[in-house]
């Protein structure tokens, strides 16, 4: 399982990274591996606001569908539209090209509650 050392993680297998004033969000390598061939992404719209833990979209593979939950509250600033046309990027480069959204956090401190890469790795091992 690949990890991005700069990111923080959730139990739903999403990651978040700081990028200047903004935060950037995607699904983890473990998530894409579990889903297998990802075929579809329904992202939120720019300008949508979410509370912590809200569902912001859906990602689908051939045999499964998974809701995307935002572990922080905030407003969507940018959506990676390239993924809508080529969702398979989420399989090949989950921490790089396959970022899903960038958002402005209402409470940046929520970031600190997320799991560190080490904790997340332990969590996924326990889960299996």
């Amino acid at each position: 399982m690949k990890l991005d050392k700069d990111a923080r993680y959730t139990k739903e297998h999403e990651w978040i990274r700081k990028e200047g004033e903004l935060f950037i969000y995607g699904i983890s390598d473990h998530a894409q591996d579990q889903l297998s061939d990802i075929v579809f992404l329904e992202p939120p719209e720019v300008g949508d606001s979410f509370a912590q833990g809200d569902s912001i979209g859906v990602v689908e593979s051939v045999k499964a569908a998974s809701d995307l939950y935002l572990p922080m509250s905030g407003e969507i600033v940018k959506v990676n539209d390239a993924l809508v046309d080529a969702p398979e990027i989420m399989n090949s480069d989950p921490y790089g090209e396959a970022w899903i959204i960038k958002f402005k956090a209402s409470d940046p401190a929520e970031f600190d509650q997320l799991m560190s890469p080490e904790d997340y790795e332990k969590y996924t091992q326990e889960e299996e």
Partner: peptide, 11 residues
């Protein structure tokens, strides 16, 4: 036909 590419069908 043999095993079919379901990922392509869905993408």
């Amino acid at each position: 036909v043999r095993r079919l590419d379901e990922a392509q069908a869905a993408r």
